[in-house]
Computed example of a mutant assay.
Amino acid sequence: MDKNTQAINYMREQNFEEAARLFNEVIEEQPDEPLGYINFGNLLVQLNENERAERFFEKAIELDTEAATAYYGLGNLYFEQSLFPKAQMNFQQAIELGLEESDVYFMLGLTLQNQEQFKYALPYLLRATELNPNDEEILFQYGLSLAQSNSLEDAENVFNRVLEINQDHSDTHYNLGVLSLFNENVDEALGHFNEALRIQPEHVLAANGKKNVEQLINEN
């Protein structure tokens, strides 16, 4: 096992000190290779050492302007700091350079969501679902952007796919409850709000939805 792989395994085990030691050795042994800087940058993001992380990613790009994963790392760094336009620019650059992974499409979709550009988020979230069709969080966010873009029937279909993977996804039940209300199906809405609260009793939005539906039923 090479040092990069070993260090990544240490990162997964949250043994950050050993990971840093090995990444440092990789950089010392191969100072002109961008991979060590990228991996060290990813480690620094996890440790919230944002300024240092940025310098490592930028060094990787200085060594190789087509290092797609360095742009992806910068995108994640800026996303965590809510610097969404800068995150968007770097995720797009990573994709243009050929990074064809669900995560980069997903993160670009989330970045656009956070800028309330829901329709622009859709093709990236769709691509993320194509690359990783069984990831419930990717599917959920895709469904959310569909709903926010007023594609309600498509959103409902996607939310139902989430429940096929995880019947206990409380936010999906809540959103299906909201869609049911739009369709004037009060009983179905109440069922979904109740399910959301069964799974997550402190779900404030579901509690509010249930209260409103029960009030509507009582008035009728």
Rank of each mutant, 00 (worst) to 15 (best):
F193D: 02
F159L: 05
N160H: 11
H169R: 08
N134W: 01
L139C: 10
Q200S: 14
S149P: 13
D154Q: 14
H169V: 04
P201Q: 04
A189W: 01
Q141G: 02
S170M: 05
Q148V: 08
G191L: 04
A147H: 13
Q141D: 15
K119L: 06
R127G: 03
N160P: 02
L179Y: 07
L190M: 10
Q148W: 13
L163G: 11
L131Q: 07
N166S: 13
E188S: 12
N166E: 12
A155M: 06
I138W: 08
N166Y: 06
G209F: 01
L205C: 00
G177P: 07
A196Y: 09
S180T: 05
F159H: 07
S170K: 10
A121P: 09
S180D: 08
E153D: 13
A155C: 09
E136Y: 00
L131T: 06
P123V: 08
F193G: 01
E188M: 09
K211W: 01
S151C: 05
G143K: 07
I138H: 09
P201T: 01
L122G: 07
T129V: 08
L144H: 11
N175G: 03
L122A: 07
L131N: 06
D168N: 15
V186M: 10
E137P: 00
N175V: 03
L126E: 15
V204D: 10
K119A: 12
E137H: 10
A147R: 15
P201W: 00
H173A: 10
E202F: 02
L126K: 15
T172N: 06
D168S: 15
E188A: 14
L131F: 03
L152Y: 14
L205N: 04
Q167C: 00
N183Q: 14
L139H: 11
V204S: 06
K211F: 07
Y120F: 03
E184G: 00
G209L: 00
A128F: 12
T172V: 13
A128H: 12
H192D: 08
Y120S: 14
T172Y: 04
E153C: 00
N183W: 04
L176M: 10
H203C: 05
G177F: 02
V186C: 00
Q200R: 14
K211D: 08
Y124N: 15
N175L: 08
L144F: 14
D135A: 05
Q167M: 11
G191E: 10
Y142W: 11
E156V: 06
L122Q: 14
Y142F: 15
V186D: 01
I165N: 13
E153K: 10
H203Q: 04
N212V: 02
